[in-house]
Amino acid sequence: MNSETTVKFPGPKNMSKTIVGLVVAVLIILLGLQSFTIVEAGHRGVVLQLGAVQPQVLEEGLHFRIPLIQKVIPIEVRVQKAESSQVSASRDLQTVTTTLAVNYHLEGVNVNSLFQKVGMEYKARVVDPAISEALKGITAQYTAEDLIAKRSEVSSKVKEALAAKLSLYNMVLDEINITEFKFSEEFDRAIEQKQIAEQQALKSKLDLDRIKIEKEQEITRAQAQAEALRLQKQEVTPELIKLREIEAQLKAIEKWNGSMPNVTGGATPFINVK
């Protein structure tokens, strides 16, 4: 007796239920995954609920959010760097190009306010214009030479002005560095010529001081010699003269060899020593 195996396929209704079940399962999984978000290190999360910025700001780590209703925008709060080269005018109307490096960061608790007011383009909309305005405002207070001579003072004032502007948008200025002041070629030549003139003037002054000191030294030596001669004259007395004559005669006797000098006429010369 032969037996036959019958294969039964699911009917249309069963097939539809299976597909629907799979779709629902996939949707549940996707919704479950969308229910959580991770805020990376050095960032804060701005929560948008149906497009509206929410008051809470998400810290670093894992957070729950309502799928399809809420969206989390990560915003970096690490120190950021902005480099800028600005052309401005000094108080004496010299054109100066200033290269500036700025370090700043966003206040983590207020990034939602910044996002709401400015958006993600805060560097182009706020930071760069603030740097330009602060720098031009301060350089206009100094002459070109003072900008070079008082660089640290200028940097301090620029930092103060820029910090005040950034604070209006919940940004914190960490540090600024003025890396270069660049002037026109004509001004550079004028500065160079002035420095050469100052060097020459200093050299001339030093030469005059040296000549004056040497002259004073010569006068001092002459005065000392004159004083010495005066003192010697004061010390010359008749007794001293007589003593010197006796000493000279004694030296002559000591050198005499006993022979009479050859002379013609006159008495035999000899020294009378008592």
Rank of each mutant, 00 (worst) to 15 (best):
I176N: 11
T143V: 11
Y122L: 03
V109T: 15
D174H: 05
A163C: 01
D128M: 13
L135W: 05
V111F: 09
D128N: 15
V109W: 06
S113D: 12
Y122M: 04
L173P: 09
A140V: 04
E153Y: 06
V127W: 05
L135N: 08
T179N: 09
K159W: 09
I176D: 10
F115T: 12
E133Y: 11
E145Q: 14
I148H: 01
I178E: 07
I176H: 01
F183K: 06
K157L: 14
Q141F: 02
V111W: 09
I138G: 08
A164P: 04
S152H: 00
L166G: 01
V126R: 13
V118L: 03
L162N: 01
A163I: 08
G119C: 11
A161D: 03
S113K: 15
A134S: 13
V109F: 12
K157Q: 15
Q116S: 11
E180D: 15
E121M: 11
M171L: 14
S156Y: 11
K165W: 04
I178Q: 06
L166E: 07
A144G: 05
K123T: 12
G119M: 02
E175L: 11
S152C: 00
I178W: 03
S167Q: 13
V154H: 05
I131C: 09
V126F: 07
L114I: 08
